[in-house]
Structure formats: structure tokens, C-alpha cells
């Protein structure tokens, strides 16, 4: 099993071979993972509770120092590209929330030293609603939102 998996991983690395990727795999014990993963925040339905769990505060200030790039209308609700850029000084972490999802907190990014205020990922959205980005800078929380419409498909002209 491990061998097979390892071989596939190496194949994967070959497809990106031009840039020289080395791939390894291992089975970690679940405990070592779950320790850091903020389970309560991911299970929270309401923002204040979620942010309290995740960032230790729940007062959020709207900020134009955060830009969310996401489509006005999602091309595919299962794959909605979202890019958050922030120039807020001292940004330590960025949370990505799809407010109308059953589990609203989708992702949280801890930025290392020298890491720019920029993350891009693709998220699932079951229905139309706001995508909210919350930035934690020195314990103060800032946010911005972008509405994304999820449609069941129209009829072109």
C-alpha cells in the first residue's frame, strides 16, 4: 500500500518535473494533527463564536485595506476561486468564511514572517451569499466581504 502510494506520488512529481519536485509521504498519528486544527471554530455557525475560537476576539472592523477577488456569479459553486489581499500592517492571519455555507468557516491562514497579505484558494459555495475575509493584526480584527451569486444555470442569448 505504502509502496503503491509512494510510486503514485513520484509520478505526480514527474508531471511537475521541470521545476524539480521531491515528494514524500507518511502516515502521521491523527493526534498530532488535531491538536492544532481549530475544530470549534470550524463547527461554529455564528461569526462571533467562530472568531473568538479562532482569533481570540470577536469585534470586527470593516476595512478597505482588504480586497476580496471572487466572481460576481460563480462559474461553478463547487469551485469558487477566492483571492484575499490585504495591506493591513502586521497581518498575522486571514480567515475565509462563506456565510451561507452549513459550515461557514472554510479556511484560516497563519502568515509567517515575511509572508505577504495574500492567499488564494478555491472554495465550495452551496448557495449565494457573502464571502467574508477576516484579518487578524495584533489581536485586532478587520474584515471585508464580497457577494457571490451561485446560480443553477441560465440560458444564454
Amino acid at each position: 500500500m505504502m509502496n503503491r502510494k509512494r510510486r503514485m506520488l513520484l509520478q505526480g512529481s514527474l508531471t511537475a518535473g521541470a521545476i524539480g519536485v521531491a515528494v514524500g509521504a507518511g502516515l502521521l498519528t491523527p493526534g498530532s494533527v488535531l491538536a492544532a486544527w481549530p475544530e470549534k471554530a470550524f463547527k461554529a455557525k455564528e461569526m462571533p463564536e467562530m472568531l473568538q475560537e479562532l482569533m481570540g476576539a470577536n469585534v470586527v472592523e470593516a476595512s478597505d485595506g482588504i480586497n476580496i477577488k471572487a466572481p460576481d456569479i460563480a462559474e461553478n459553486g463547487a469551485v469558487v476561486p477566492v483571492t484575499v489581499t490585504t495591506d493591513i500592517a502586521g497581518a498575522q492571519s486571514i480567515a475565509l468564511i462563506a456565510v451561507n455555507n452549513p459550515a461557514p468557516l472554510v479556511a484560516s491562514y497563519d502568515l509567517g514572517e515575511g509572508t505577504e497579505g495574500f492567499v488564494s484558494t478555491r472554495i465550495k459555495m452551496g448557495k449565494s451569499g457573502d464571502v467574508v475575509a477576516v484579518v487578524n493584526a495584533g489581536g485586532k480584527l478587520y474584515s471585508a466581504k464580497k457577494e457571490v451569486k451561485v446560480t443553477i444555470g441560465g440560458c444564454g442569448g
Binding site: 456569479i73 462559474e75 446560480t151 441560465g154 444564454g156 442569448g157
Partner: peptide, 17 residues
């Protein structure tokens, strides 16, 4: 809105807006 109003499966690599 091509990949919304028409099938995305024919043009999976392209994104519009």
C-alpha cells in the same frame, strides 16, 4: 458568463467574468 449559461465541460480550462 459563458461557463454559467453554457456548459463548462466543453471548456474546462477557461474562466470568464
Amino acid at each position: 458568463y459563458t461557463p454559467i449559461a453554457n456548459p463548462q465541460r466543453f471548456i474546462p480550462d477557461w474562466t470568464f467574468g
